[in-house]
C-alpha cells in the first residue's frame, strides 16, 4: 500500500495555474483553454493559406513568416497556456533553455561542415565526399602507379579489386 496522497499537486503543491489564467474557477479555466485552442486553429489556417498566397505572389518573406514564424507563436502558446511553463519552477525553464541551447550548439558545430561546399583545395560531391582539387603528395611504394604491363588496367577501366603488387616485384616478374 502506498502512502502518497490521492492527488498531490492539487493542494499546496499546485502550480498556481488558476491565478495565471486570471480565474479561480474550473469553468473560467476551461473557457480560457478553449479560447487558446481557437486562436491556435486560426494560426493553423494562417500557416496553411499563407504559404499558398506567398508562393503565388512570389513573396519569400511571407512564406517564411507564415510557415515558421507562426509555428514559433503556436509553440509558445502551447508551452505557456497548456504546459504552463510560465508558472513552473525556474529549474524547469533552465532545463528547457539548456535543451534548446544544445540544439543551437549542434547547428553551429556542424553547419560549416555540411553547408560549405568547397574550400581552397577541396570540394564536396553530391554524396558529401571530399575530393581534393590540387595534387596530393605521392607516397612511395604501393601507392605508386603500376608500370604498364600485364598488371596495368586498360585505359578507361577501373583498377582491379585485388591488391596491386609492389613496383619492384612486378618488374622482377616481367624479367623472367
Amino acid at each position: 500500500m502506498t502512502a502518497h496522497p490521492q492527488a498531490p499537486g492539487h493542494g499546496n503543491e499546485t502550480h498556481g495555474h488558476g491565478a495565471s489564467h486570471g480565474g479561480g474557477h474550473g469553468g473560467s479555466h476551461e473557457a480560457h483553454y478553449v479560447r487558446i485552442w481557437a486562436i491556435l486553429v486560426v494560426l493553423l489556417l494562417v500557416s496553411y493559406f499563407g504559404p499558398m498566397v506567398a508562393t503565388k505572389l512570389g513573396w519569400h518573406w511571407l512564406l517564411l513568416t507564415t510557415a515558421f514564424g507562426v509555428a514559433v507563436i503556436k509553440a509558445y502558446m502551447v508551452a505557456k497556456n497548456f504546459m504552463h511553463i510560465n508558472v513552473e519552477q525556474p529549474i524547469i525553464k533552465f532545463m528547457m533553455v539548456t535543451g534548446v541551447a544544445l540544439m543551437v550548439l549542434l547547428y553551429g558545430a556542424i553547419a560549416p561542415d555540411i553547408q560549405k561546399g568547397d574550400g581552397q583545395n577541396w570540394q564536396k560531391d553530391a554524396g558529401f565526399h571530399h575530393s581534393f582539387t590540387t595534387s596530393k603528395p605521392h607516397h612511395a611504394g604501393a601507392h605508386e602507379p603500376a608500370p604498364a604491363g600485364e598488371h596495368a588496367a586498360p585505359a578507361g577501366e577501373h583498377a582491379p579489386a585485388e591488391p596491386m603488387p609492389a613496383a619492384s616485384e612486378s618488374t622482377g616478374a616481367s624479367g623472367h
Binding site: 492527488a7 488558476g18 474550473g26 479555466h29 476551461e30 483553454y33 478553449v34 497548456f82
Partner: peptide, 11 residues
C-alpha cells in the same frame, strides 16, 4: 485541448 481540459477536471 482535451488533454488540458482533463487536467482542469483533475484539479
Amino acid at each position: 485541448l482535451s488533454a488540458v481540459l482533463a487536467h482542469a477536471a483533475a484539479e
